[in-house]
Amino acid sequence: MPDDTMTTSRKASALAAFKDMPREPGVPKPDPILVVDKVVRRFGGLTAVDVDHVEIQRGSITALIGPNGAGKTTFFNQLTGFDTADAGAWTFNGRAMNGVPAHKVARNGMVRTFQLTKALSRLTVLENMRLGAQKQKGESFWRAMIPAFWRGQEDEITERAEELLVRFKLDAKREDFAGSLSGGQRKLLEMARALMVEPELVMLDEPMAGVNPALTQSLLGHVKDLREQGMTVLFVEHDMDMVRDISDWVIVMAQGTVIAEGPPSTIMSDERVIDAYLGAHHDAPLSDTELESQLHEAEAALEAEIEEETQK
């Protein structure tokens, strides 16, 4: 079956690219779609993100993991223009992206989803989908008033949206308000809507959070599908089973910096990663000063978390 060979070849080529790659943070990739240099973001005294160098391989599924408060979502926000970095530069397809506003980042083919799903509640599922399409003639004020200008394009968009809805098994809900969907269905809708943009790089912020187990497999399948269609995926996740299952490469963040990279099979046995998750010298008894500094770190992380929560 052609589909199958495609699947294996995409996955194989992605894996082949990562073969024998050093497990060092910031390791260069043969064909990077996204290159990040020295991105810093501070909130008051707290440095939330301080990434020296990181590259994302084109056509791969890369996972971004790390303990709570590691700065993963903040890093996502910097890259996608939702928050302004204090310093640093990054390129997408060789084009500089620092300081570019969020909507232009998306237009360039770098589309994200959110940790807390942002379904547009009082729009129907189909309208949610249509919104994702780019370069719509009917989105300009003057042309909007005369349907003849945009009818044809709208029909094409609707057709594409319906194909995607079928693929994501949401076609039965097309006329329902998005607000009436379940949590998992909203995640699916958000992903499908992101695909309407026709992105090259899809950035998923915790795609599995709050999804019931029955839907997990189907969501995983969809993420793998993105790679098979030639897209690059970068996702933040806590669930290590999922990371091991679908990712080709894993980047680990802790306290705002990238501390390790490696293939999913071995990354969790990396000393630095274990330290990050469990604390340094987790088997040795702690001295008073160490205890204090750990407490401070935990506090800072918690504060960042709270801030993140309250701003939602």
Binding site: A119, L131, G132, M145, M196, V197
Partner: peptide, 25 residues
Amino acid sequence: LLMKSPWGRVLKAIREDEDAVRALG
């Protein structure tokens, strides 16, 4: 006329969640 057009759709989407709309370009 405006509110049943794609232009109006963008406005309604902004009402629901403007970050999501920004993320869609």
